[in-house]
Structures are given as C-alpha cells and as structure tokens.
Design a protein around this nucleic acid. Structure first.
Length: 643
RNA sequence: GCCCACGUAACUCAGUGGUAGAGUACCUCCUUGGUAAGGAGGAAGUCACCGGUUCAAGUCCGGUCGUGGGCUCCA
C-alpha cells in the first residue's frame, strides 16, 4: 500500500491508500477524479517520499493539476528562482554567491552577494539568459547526499552562505537539485525541466540582510514573478498598475487630503482642508461610538517631566524611540511617545473602589516617536500620529468580558468601513517578561476565551507578546496586499505596578487593578491611509469631505446657486460650488476626478422650478428634486452609512 | 539606519556637457455652452542643497537633505 497524505491550507489533512502496485500515474488520476487536484499537488510538495515526487514530476498528468493549484504555482516560482540564480551566475560570473531563493506571495526572490549590487539595468540581460535556459529544456535533477558531503561540495564552490545554512541543519541528509551546471541546496520539489517556465519577469531590486539580521552582510535581492501562462502574468502586472492608482500617497495629493513638506520634516503630516474634514468625521464617529459603549473621553498634554518617563520605564525600554528632551525652568521634559502614563495619572488622582470598575477611558492622543527614515511610509508609518487609544482598568474576573466588549466594538467599527477580512494574531509570553506566570496564564486564557466567544479565528504567535503582557493584533490588508496592523489589545501587568495603582476591594484591602491598552484604528493617520486605498478615494457619503458640488450652466443661475449653497451649508451638507465660466462638461469632469458623490446641476429649468438636478458619482441622474428633498436624502444615506 | 533607484514650474513629466522645455493647473481676454477637457494669450523654475571636475554642469564626481522599492523595526 502506498499512502499519500494530502494537506492544503484551509482544509483538513486527508489521506488515501492505494493498492500495492498502483502506479503513481493511476493514483494521481484517481485523485483527479475525486476532485482532489489541489491536494495531490500538496502531496507532492509535502508528504510524498522524494523518489516518488521525482517520478510524479515526470508525469504528464501533473501539468494540469499544478496549473490549477496554488501549490503548483509555488513549485513553478521556486524553480524559476533557481533558474534566475543560474542565469545570474552565467551572466555575472561564478564568483557571485547565492544565499536563499524562496517563492513568496505573488512571486519569488533570490538573494545574492556580489561586489557591485545589481541595478534594474541588469534585468534585461538576466531575463535573456533565463529565456535561453528555459529554451534549453534542462531537467531538474535531484540527488541526496549527507550534510558533510554537501558542506564539502559547497565549500569547494565557494558558496559560504549555503555552507552556513548546512552547518545549522540538524538532519543527516539533504537534497540537491541541479539544472545545467547550477546546483542548489533545496528541499524541492521542482518542475521536471526548465521548459515549464513559460512566463516570468524580474520586478525590482532591493537590499536585504543575510538571515534578516541587520548586523549581517547586506545582500542584493532580486524580486521576480512567474506564472504558467503569459495572460496571467499580464493580469498580475495590470493589478499592480491598478493598485498604484489607489496608492494613498498619490490619491492624498490628487484629492487634496494631506501633504508632507521637507521644510516641516519627514513623517510629519500636514492635513489639508479636505483631509482635515475627513479626519474630523472619523474622530466624531469614534467619539460617539465610544461614548455609546461606556467609555469616557480624556485629554492629556503632549509633554511630561522626564521623571515620569523614568517611572513608566519608557526611558529605559523605549528611549531610542523618544525625541530628546527639553528643559523648562531647569526641569527636563520629554515629548510623549505614548498616552498611558497620563491616563494613569488621572487614575491616581483619586482613590478607587472595585465598585467603579470597569473604568474605560479613551483619548485621541497624539504621540511622537522616532522612526528610522527608511521605515517612514506616507500616512502608514509616520513620526507624529494620533492613536485612538483607551485604557481599561478592571478586576481579574472582569478581564474576559472586557476583552470581549473591546473585540465587539472593534469588529463593529471595522465593519462600518467595510472591513470584513483581517488577520488576527494572539501573541503569548516572550522570554523576557514581567508579572507572575499565573497572571500571564489567566490573561492569555481570557484573550482566547473572548475571541472564541466572539467566533474570531486567530493564529498564535508564540513568544511574540510584549514584555508586560499578552496581546491581540488585528491586521488589515491594503490594496497592494501589504498588511497593516491597526487594532491592538494588550494586557499590562507592568505599569500598574510601577505607578503603584490600587483600588479598594470588597474585602476592604488594597489591590492592583488590571490594565488593558487598546487601539482599534491604531492611529488615525494609518487608518485613513488604509481607508483611502480601500475606497480608492471615493469615500462613502458620510465620510466624503465634499458631499456635493453645485454647478451652474450659465452665469444667469449664479445667484440662485449661491442661495442654495448657503441653505445646504447651513443644513450641514458639505457642499462646494463651481460657478466658473466653464462648460458643464468641464465642471463635471473636475468634480468626478475629485470623487464628489453628488453633483447638483443648475440650469434655467432648475432655476425656474426651484429644483436641483442630481448627478451621482457613477454617472446616473436622479429626477429633479427640491433642495430640501436633497438634504433629507443625504441625511438618510449618511445615517445608514455610519450605522 | 542599511542596499538600490530617484529629486527639473503648483502637479505629471521630457531634456546624455554648449541659451531651461511640454501638458495640466494659475492669470487675462473671447466664448454663456445641459452630463468627463471650447479657443487665444500671459505669468511662472537658484534644475533639492553644498562642494568639486571642466572653457562650459540640469547633465560628470563627492557629500548632505528628501522621496520611492525592499531589509530591519513598528500603530
């Protein structure tokens, strides 16, 4: 009997047995007929003994299976990485050292060590050589040798990175794959021969540290992608183009939302009127929702005595990210990187009883953190930003309910903006930590229970928690597929201790409260950045900085327009007007490009009837209506959107 | 911070050592036009900044600042 265990992300592992003597080909065909194509390739990739996989690869039945599966694509891309490495060595000389070259989402990369780093000008030569290798139809040949033999082999080739990898391996035998004269240390599997690679493209060059450690050698990484056919490559490149059009930095400029000026400094956002309007709407929504959900609003200053940051531990643990201090009346002060100590200050201003708990305090708190220049990115990563922060103080028994409530509010808010998909991570106790083991266990369990009660699927990141407590992170994906951490929920055993926070329990004794930090949007800057890309700048009516724009057809309607403009504005409609001596077409075009949801067109007819003609952003026209009817319609639609 | 690329008018970009360019926006004039660009003219740049090479630098070289793609780090 040959047993094949198949597993594929998102489904349970299955295994299927075949009678002795079943050929691989027959087994595969059966899997195909059982609609297990994807699983079959997963079998090739994961669990099938190596000689069998080699055999599978020669099988013609494999091609259609691979072409339909994510796993097959991974195999193709990984093979393409080998081919790229071969091409690089043939074009630029055998003294170019290779590091690693895995398949990744949307493509693959290979890291090289070469004296002169590659530039995009080198792409053409590499691609040309790759095409030659593909045309030569070189088979991928697998062989297994001992680790020692492999070390000898790669040492003789001068491939120090491969040798380092081998030295860290705890297996006895490894596999090598060879196509042409290029041999690589690799688990496989690979395509049967190079001719399978029909469609590939080098995308960009980037630096990367060997093994991701910034103390190590900087290598040159070539990013590329590959597909089974040219159409798919084209579709992918189109998708990249489309994504570029939604880039929040580009749209932010075009729509007049925000600007970053050299004169002010990198990572510091200047909100232009339209962006400021958008932000105000978001802030109002956030405050309203928090008040409804039992939070009280706080305001705190931007600087505090350096001593407070010593007490909090930020100076010791977070000092590198804090801006240097200033002296006021001979006392050292520092700009705040976090809001927590201020909220604790408010807590410690009074004595507290367990009867007050849970205390939920929130603030849109602007903080400043030193970020390395290379980390800055539009609105997504900045140096001055406003967290939608909150701190909850409660008793241990209340922890689970509080976490549940936070998640509930969190998902509610995300849903309002149409975010239904996100990745959730639970980070557990790291090696270095404060707090007792029981506390860690209790609160980690509370986080788990709350998520399960809410039906939230999550992944565990073992040991990735902050030193002061476990946390839940929620990441939202932007249009370029990058994911951004917005929401974070963290339990803290550290600050209540450091600041000597207490409450009086039912037993009359003093106890230490549990503290939860949480941000749902993360920061307004980042969240707005994600929103811009999410909506491609076409915000829903309730968020649109300019909800409607009035435009006259000739000067004869100017006065009527101005009257309506004043009425709508005082009714709270965010209205703009375009009374310029331009053709209607031209005005519509401009409003359209600014993604204004409604255009109110005023000609002689409307002026005489006392109406407006409404053109929607999608090009549809609504029947003429009175200004009041328009106001009612907008209000209704906004209420629905904000719910 | 590190590797690579880039920085020219408000915006998008052309300009490979010999007088600084285009389109859009802006201003003026003509045009008063019903659902995505009407016409003509005008003004606008210390070619990011500092230094060097050269008879001559937007262009070549070095440095600084900034931006982009990554790495690392993070909301």
């Amino acid at each position: 009997m040959t047993e094949i265990t198949v597993s594929i992300s998102g489904t349970e592992a299955e295994s299927q047995s075949f009678a002795a003597g079943t050929t691989v080909q027959d087994a595969l065909k059966e899997l195909v007929s059982n609609k297990q194509r994807k699983q079959a390739v997963a079998a090739v990739c994961n669990n099938v003994p190596c000689d069998l996989s080699a055999q599978l690869m020669e099988d013609t039945v494999l091609e259609p299976i691979m072409m339909r599966s994510e796993e097959g694509l991974q195999v193709l891309r990984h093979s393409s990485a080998h081919i790229m490495a071969q091409a690089v060595k043939e074009v630029f000389g055998q003294d170019v050292k290779v590091a690693i070259g895995p398949a990744i989402e949307d493509g693959y990369y290979y890291d090289f060590d070469r004296e002169i780093p590659f530039t995009p000008d080198d792409f053409e030569a590499i691609e040309k050589k790759m095409a030659e290798i593909v045309k030569a139809r070189l088979p991928f040949e697998r062989r297994e040798i001992s680790v020692d033999e492999a070390i000898d082999f790669f040492t003789s080739q001068g491939e120090e990175y491969k040798v380092e990898l081998l030295r860290d391996m705890d297996t006895d035998r490894v596999s090598l794959y060879q196509q042409g004269n290029f041999v690589d240390l690799c688990r496989g599997p690979h395509i049967p021969d190079t001719s399978w690679l029909k469609s590939f493209k080098l995308l960009r060059v980037a630096g990367s540290y060997w093994r991701g450690d910034e103390n190590n050698q900087m290598l040159t990484r070539l990013y590329a992608t590959a597909f089974f056919d040219k159409k798919e490559l084209k579709r992918y490149l189109n998708r990249l183009e489309e994504a570029k059009k939604r880039d929040h930095r580009k749209l932010g400029k075009e729509l007049g939302l925000f600007t970053i000026q050299d004169e002010v400094g990198p990572g510091l956002i200047l909100w232009q009127p339209r962006g400021a309007q958008l932000r105000r709407l978001l802030e109002d929504y956030w405050k309203d929702e928090h008040y409804k959900h039992g939070y009280e609003l706080l305001y705190t200053p931007h600087i505090a005595r350096q001593d407070m940051w010593k007490t909090s531990g930020h100076l010791d643990f977070y000092g590198e990210n804090m801006y240097s201090g200033m002296e006021i009346d001979d006392v050292a002060y520092q700009l705040k990187p976090m809001n927590c100590p201020f909220h604790i200050g408010i807590y410690n201003a009074n004595k507290h009883s367990y009867r007050e708990f849970p205390i939920r305090w929130c603030e849109l708190g602007t903080v400043y953190r030193y970020e390395r220049t290379g980390a800055l990115h539009g609105l997504m990563r900045v140096r001055g930003f406003t967290q939608d922060d909150a701190h909850i103080f409660c008793r241990p028994e209340q922890l689970e309910d509080e976490i549940f409530n936070i998640i509930d509010l969190n998902l509610h808010i995300l849903k309002t903006f149409g975010f239904d998909e996100y990745d959730v991570y639970l980070s557990t106790r790291p090696k270095k930590y404060v707090g007792s083991d029981e506390h860690w266990e209790l609160s980690t369990e509370a986080l788990k229970q709350a998520m399960e009660k809410k039906g939230l699927a999550y992944e565990v990141d073992p040991g990735e928690g902050v030193f002061y407590g476990p946390k839940i992170d929620i990441k939202i994906k932007d249009q370029l597929g990058r994911s951004w951490q917005c929401s974070t929920i963290q339990v803290d055993f550290n600050l209540p201790e450091r600041f000597g926070m207490t409450y009086t329990g039912s037993d009359g004794a003093e106890h230490q409260p549990i503290m939860i930090h949480r941000a749902l949007m993360g920061s307004l800057e980042r969240f707005i950045g994600v929103l811009i890309e999410h909506y491609a700048g076409a915000f829903p009516l309730w968020l649109a900085p300019e909800q409607a724009r009035l435009m006259n057809i000739t000067d004869d309607q100017s006065e009527y327009c101005q009257r309506i403009f004043a009425d709508l504005r005082s009714a709270g409609i965010r209205i703009g007007q375009d009374l310029r001596n331009e053709k209607l077409n031209y005005k519509i075009r401009e409003a359209q490009m600014m993604k204004v949801p409604y255009m109110l067109i005023i000609g002689e007819r409307e002026k005489e009837d006392g109406t407006v003609t409404v053109r929607k952003r999608n090009g549809d026209n609504l029947p003429p209506m009175s200004p009041q009817e328009f106001i009612d319609m907008v209000c209704r639609e906004c209420e629905e959107g904000r719910a």
